[in-house]
């Protein structure tokens, strides 16, 4: 009798534990209970996400993490940065190790469906390019027949590279590397003729060289790489929060809301769109489970989209990326926030 009670309780405990361990639930609640946002970022790509000597992370993707933490938790510093490689990033997200992945990840059909991710928008329109040494005497990717090319494994660029060389009837020798740092080392040592990744990543990598003027990025862009933050399938409210935080940053630039004038505009702006964005009228925040001032905090964290771009990867920084496709739609770019209404 006693024994059956014992085994019964063992089974019950086991079942209860299996229920508790299942990675299911309300991400917003979890983040609030933890009082920290787990944000998956690059292991180190200057301009996008890299820690400084004191371990403080900064960069384009990091700014998004900060904005999201400010919107949800009211404090842009309450972010735990989880560095993930090209190989570990999606597993980290789907296992619940990170709440949101902001790591130069390309939005593709298969990742959006089969990998059970939800890309919540695009924060950088990119394309894959090649970087070579100037003294190699190559001026076009079409001249790379027979070259040895360093490539980060587990990325879309790996597949694009194979397709591009096949389509152009060229041969190449891939050198598989695990992280951008390793790629940099191999490329600098001349173990590969060319390094290929997203053009923004190439610019960022080149900026960290001692002699950036001796390296060129070839003109060919061989793929579309829309990069954006991603969340898990299934938690739609968390997806909404992540999506509209990104739109808030983009919309803020469109309406001229900056981290400098935001408090003033919150009081004095007559633009109804700005009023809704900043929560002075219509409490949009409530509809996604946040308070009225969520977007205000998100924009204050590191500025609007344009300010973040300029401060981290823009033309005034060593990385020196032009806005190009990433300008506002009103400026001929593709950045287009959905209406706050």
């Amino acid at each position: 009798m006693k024994k059956s009670v014992f085994f019964g309780s063992v089974t019950a405990v086991a079942l209860a534990a299996s229920g508790a361990l299942a990675a299911e639930g309300d991400t917003l609640k979890e983040v609030k209970a933890r009082d920290a946002l787990n944000c998956g970022v690059n292991t180190g790509l200057i301009g996008f996400a890299a820690p400084d000597a004191n371990g403080n992370w900064s960069g384009f993707d990091v700014s998004y993490c900060k904005a999201l933490a400010a919107a949800v938790l009211g404090d842009a510093t309450k972010v735990k940065y989880v560095p993930v490689t090209g190989q570990t990033r999606f597993t980290a997200l789907s296992s619940g190790e990170v709440d949101v992945l902001a790591r130069n990840s390309t939005w593709t059909f298969q990742r959006d469906t089969d990998l059970k991710l939800d890309f919540i928008g695009i924060n950088y329109y990119d394309g894959q390019g090649f970087m070579v040494r100037k003294d190699l005497g190559v001026s076009s990717a079409k001249e790379l027949n027979g070259a040895t090319i360093c490539i980060q494994t587990g990325t879309t660029t790996e597949l694009n590279l194979a397709d591009y060389f096949k389509a152009n009837n060229m041969e190449y020798q891939p050198v598989n590397i695990d992280s951008n740092a390793e790629g940099e080392q191999q490329y600098m040592a001349g173990a590969c003729d060319a390094y290929t990744t997203d053009a923004s990543g190439l610019a960022a990598t080149r900026a960290s060289f001692a002699d950036p003027e001796n390296h060129i990025i070839l003109p060919e862009i061989i793929s579309k790489e829309p990069l954006g933050p991603a969340v898990r399938h299934g938690d739609n409210n968390w997806g909404d929060i992540a999506r509209w935080t990104l739109y808030a940053l983009i919309a803020a630039e469109e309406y001229g809301v900056t981290s400098a004038n935001i408090d003033e505009l919150a009081k004095s702006s007559n633009n109804p769109e700005v009023q809704r964005l900043l929560g002075t009228t219509d409490e949009l925040g409530k509809m996604i489970g946040l308070d009225a001032e969520w977007a205000r905090r998100a924009i204050k964290a590191s500025g609007n989209y344009g300010e973040i771009f300029a401060a981290t990867i823009g033309e005034q920084t060593p990385i020196g990326l032009a806005r190009g496709l990433n300008a506002q739609w009103t400026q001929g770019g593709l950045m287009y926030a959905m209406p706050f209404r």
């Binding site: 298969q110 089969d114 494994t153 598989n176």
Partner: peptide, 15 residues
């Protein structure tokens, strides 16, 4: 580990 457990795993998401 590099093919099946690396690139294939990553591109297909079949961990």
């Amino acid at each position: 580990r590099g093919t099946l457990g690396g690139t294939t795993l990553n591109q297909t998401g079949r961990e």
